[in-house]
Simulated scan of single mutants.
Amino acid sequence: MKSTMLSMLVTLLLIYLSVCLVVFLLQRKLLYFPTPPLLHFSPPMEATKVSFENGGERLSGWVVNEGRAKALLYYGGNAENIEYNITFFKDNLPDYTIYLIAYRGYGDSTGEPTEAHLYSDALHIFDQVTAEHSQLSLLGRSLGSGVATYVATHREVDKLVLVTPFDSTANVARSVYWMFPVSLLITDKYESAKRAPNIVAKTTIIYAENDNVIPRESTERLIEAFSHRLENSILIRSADHNDISEFPEYAVRLKRALN
């Protein structure tokens, strides 16, 4: 009887470890959801196609409202087609030149997304455009909030706006894959909360009341990590993770944070 129980426990342990190995090997497939290029997309006249080269890869995107003294670098969410933001930024932030550049492997950009690659690309693009503007601000949404906090700790940034952000991807993953030792398995952790104390840019956090992707406690831990250095944190009532930018209050709060 004891040997049978022991055999069952060993079998279950081996199955569990095998699943952990699969999760580890496929983690980037579970984390990143690259969007294909929009083959028939016709941008407004105010948007110009642009590309950057970094590490042998081409990073493609759009520039909106060219020639402004102030600029905003936008880091989008997972599975987001950045092109769909062109009209919003043209209408709501006419005083800013907006850079909408797709991550590696997203849209028309080449390569494979990893945390290190996204950081490297973001810094490279920042350094390429900084001479053209008197001020550079950052807007990071969801996954992009992790990229934005990294850039804000390594470059001089005027304002930082984080939309539906998280404290770390490890903590977000833990809320879904609670049965696995996520901290030991995950490689791309995007630890924004650990960077928050080192960020000096004027920072605003905008988050959704009914976010079904980022747990509320993850965002609240990030808010707590900023402590008194946070300019403002705004909860958009009735909004969820994907439709927050459709609420009129979102545009009002964003403009207020950047002005």
Rank of each mutant, 00 (worst) to 15 (best):
M1K: 08
S3M: 10
T4M: 11
T4I: 15
M5W: 12
L9V: 13
L12A: 15
L13K: 02
S18N: 11
V19G: 05
R28Y: 08
L30C: 08
L31E: 12
Y32F: 15
P34T: 10
P37Y: 09
L38I: 11
L38Q: 15
F41H: 13
S42Q: 15
S42D: 12
M45R: 14
E46Q: 11
K49V: 12
S51R: 08
E53W: 06
G55C: 02
G56K: 05
L59I: 08
V63T: 13
Y74N: 05
Y74M: 07
N78P: 07
A79S: 13
Y84Q: 14
N85Q: 14
F88I: 07
T97V: 02
A102V: 04
A102N: 15
Y103D: 05
G105Q: 05
S109G: 05
E112K: 14
T114H: 06
T114N: 05
Y119L: 06
I125Q: 00
Q128N: 09
R141W: 12
R141P: 06
A148R: 10
T149H: 07
R155E: 07
D158Y: 04
V161S: 04
V161R: 00
T169C: 09
R174M: 11
L185D: 03
I186K: 11
T187V: 13
K189N: 09
Y190I: 08
R195N: 05
V200K: 14
A208D: 03
A208G: 05
A208I: 04
N210E: 12
V213R: 10
S218M: 01
S218Q: 08
S218C: 06
L222R: 00
F226G: 00
S227P: 00
R229Y: 01
I234W: 05
I234Y: 09
R237S: 13
E246I: 02
F247M: 05
Y250W: 07
V252L: 13
R256Y: 11
